[in-house]
């Protein structure tokens, strides 16, 4: 049984409860009074299929697939406008990230969502050595959609790259030798521990 089906089984019709128990800050969802100030405050507003307040309503209405499969919460850029304005003090930004994260873990997040893919690339990059390999990250991003478009994007950014080289903001040798944290072993065990704690908290252990 996949994690997703396990969750469906566990919460049957109660998606709100599922969110409360599994999503970071999910217990705040019920506090929304549908004023819509968050939806209007988001600078990415027009691009949202379902703005935060609507997502909260959908959660209450049990629209599990639509919410978790939505591109919407991946739009959040953490500008915190919504949190500042929310009359109920909901940590909306965090809930959006929590929902995205949860959808991703359940394998329901839209596969091609660029934010999700960026986050994945970023994570894989940093998790390797404990420090971001900026050059590697950039190249990975450029070539995310295939070789052709990667070359195009890289060429377009060449000027910037040369400039950065000149001002020593970019180390060309990072491709071959990237300096990680001092004690990579300890870093890896730290990550492992953190994952265990997180999984336990979300009831995913075992």
């Amino acid at each position: 049984m996949s994690v997703n089906t396990a969750m469906i089984e566990k919460y049957r019709n109660d998606f709100l409860k599922e969110v409360e128990e599994n999503v970071e800050e999910g217990h705040w969802v019920k506090m929304c009074m549908q004023c819509g100030v968050c939806s209007g405050s988001c600078p990415f507003g027009p691009h949202w299929e379902h703005p935060p307040q609507e997502i909260f309503m959908m959660i209450r209405a049990g629209k599990r697939d639509e919410v978790l499969g939505s591109e919407s919460m991946w739009m959040c850029t953490s500008c915190y406008n919504c949190i500042v304005r929310c009359p109920r003090e909901l940590p909306i930004t965090h809930i959006m990230h929590g929902l995205a994260n949860y959808a991703h873990r359940l394998g329901l997040a839209p596969k091609m969502n660029p934010t999700r893919r960026f986050a994945k690339i970023f994570w894989d990059n940093i998790a390797k050595t404990g420090r971001v390999n900026e050059l590697g990250l950039s190249l990975n991003l450029y070539f995310m959609d295939g070789f052709g478009s990667g070359v195009k994007k890289a060429t377009a950014m060449a000027g910037v790259g040369v400039g950065m080289l000149r001002t020593k903001r970019l180390n060309p040798f990072a491709l071959v030798r990237h300096k990680g944290v001092q004690n990579p072993k300890e870093f890896q065990s730290l990550l492992k521990k953190a994952k265990e704690v997180e999984d336990r908290r979300k009831g995913l252990a075992g």
Binding site: L16, K30, M31, M33, Q34, M57, A61, R88
Partner: peptide
Amino acid sequence: LRTPGNGEDFYRSAQRKGVTFTK
């Protein structure tokens, strides 16, 4: 939803307790 004055606290309290409100 008409909860004037401090009724607003009562409304919030109900939400905290998990009462679902739908227009």
